[in-house]
Write a protein that binds this DNA or RNA. Structure first.
Length: 259
DNA sequence: TCAGTTGTTTATAT
DNA sequence: AATATAAACAACTG
């Protein structure tokens, strides 16, 4: 379930199991999941290398291995699995990093996303493309500055990875609902107080989310707690929520609270 | 059978 | 040049 908070969870998981460990082999179980190299090339590049501390930028997990960097993107259905917790490989396990003490598997049912190998930091930048600042890392000043240069709808901006990196469909709805901003509101129409509220809310939602596993469902009083339930009502004012399609994505909002 | 799904890219239109 | 939209990608689930 990967947006920024989930990928942060994967980063910690990778750090726990793979950082400081030497790769014995890379078993590519589905060659199509490696997007920019052949399966043997990935094995050859990483075998015998030791992983350092993983980093995260937006929804990308970046795993340096003394020289080459393994790039992991989770799409909609990606996951990491540690072999001690689940001994058998699953049919959606697409790649396994094999260590002496176990194996870390990249699972992805739908195969959106995948794994890339960068030979160095320069190649890494080319592969992840023109990403904006990480949504949890961006300063208020930079966020407001970027917002002032942006036109169009506010939800589209939040979800644009070149604007800020890490916010997806569910988080965008959550932030806008908490900040009481209609997702179709034009950025030009937002006054200074509303822009400041948007930043504060974005930051607060992300902070809570990265610290709380399963926040999407467990966080009482949040939009995502009731999202998708038939007849769902706004947790604040009890007005029935609207469900609309916006740029091909399902959007939930409260017609009473949000403008 | 049909609609829907937390992401990204591409083509096309505005 | 930016922004908006739909479709495609793939593999399910209800």
């Amino acid at each position: 379930m990967p947006e920024l908070p989930e990928v942060e969870t994967y980063r910690r998981f990778f750090a726990e199991h793979a950082a400081g460990r030497t790769v014995r082999s890379v078993d590519v179980l589905d060659p199509a999941i490696v997007r920019n190299e052949t399966a043997p090339a990935v094995d050859l590049a990483l075998r015998g290398h030791r992983f350092g501390e993983p980093r995260r930028h937006g929804k990308w997990l970046l795993c340096p291995a003394s020289g080459p960097v393994l790039l992991v993107h989770f799409g909609m259905t990606g996951d990491l699995v540690w072999s001690r917790q689940e001994p058998e490989r699953h049919r959606h396990d697409r790649l396994a990093l094999v260590f002496d003490h176990g194996e870390l598997r990249y699972r992805n049912m739908r195969k959106l996303g995948g794994v890339w190998l960068a030979r160095d930091e320069a190649e890494l930048k080319d592969l992840i493309g023109d990403l904006g600042p990480d949504a949890l890392d961006v300063s208020r000043r930079e966020f407001l500055d970027r917002l002032s240069r942006r036109r169009g709808g506010v939800k589209a901006a939040l979800m644009d990875q070149r604007f800020v990196a890490g916010v997806g469909n569910l988080l965008a709805d959550e932030v806008l609902w908490q900040a009481r901003i209609h997702p179709r509101r034009r950025i030009d129409d937002l006054d200074a107080a509303t822009r400041a509220r948007l930043f504060r809310t974005l930051h607060r939602v992300l902070r809570v989310a990265v610290d709380e596993f399963d926040y999407l469902e467990s966080r009482m009083g949040w939009l995502n707690h009731v999202r998708g339930e038939p007849g769902a009502r706004c947790p604040r004012c009890r007005t029935p929520l609207s469900r609309v399609t916006f740029a091909g994505r399902t959007t939930y909002l409260c017609p009473s609270c949000q403008r």
